[in-house]
């Protein structure tokens, strides 16, 4: 469907990748750790390697969680936009198929949040 309007209704997406000055948006969700209220929204360079992403982006983001020290994100279960995903630390974001506004979901079995409450 489309908008019912008094004249022709045209709109441009506000968050096209061109608007991010060479960077791209990425969302990361760590299930069963709802102490972080929602998935994170971060900006990454398309040529950043997955290894750098883990060390420089994900780990600092989750550092305040008591489970973070025990989380082995490389051995975790990954999904990219709801499809199974195998991380390769040396591959770039772009080579890994992680495009603008993609969402990564990383599940760490055995880690179920504060006192196992999913928080």
């Amino acid at each position: 469907m489309s908008v019912n309007a008094i004249s022709e209704y045209k709109a441009e997406p506000k968050d096209r990748v061109e608007n991010f000055h060479g960077m791209q948006l990425l969302y990361i969700y760590w299930p069963h750790h709802l102490m972080f209220c929602s998935p994170f929204a971060v900006m990454v360079a398309p040529d950043m390697t997955f290894g750098d992403f883990l060390e420089q982006v994900l780990k600092p983001a989750v550092a305040s969680h008591p489970d973070s020290a025990r989380a082995d994100f490389l051995k975790a279960e990954w999904k990219l936009n709801d499809e199974p995903f195998t991380p390769d630390v040396s591959a770039t974001m772009k080579d890994s198929g992680i495009d603008h506004k993609s969402m990564l979901t990383v599940t760490t079995p055995g880690l179920d949040g504060i006192s196992g409450s999913g928080s």
Partner: peptide
Amino acid sequence: FKNEPEKYIQAWLPVHQIYQG
């Protein structure tokens, strides 16, 4: 969104606006 996508693709999302500078 699906009923009127043109309306919401223009959303001024504060987080994205910060990242856009």
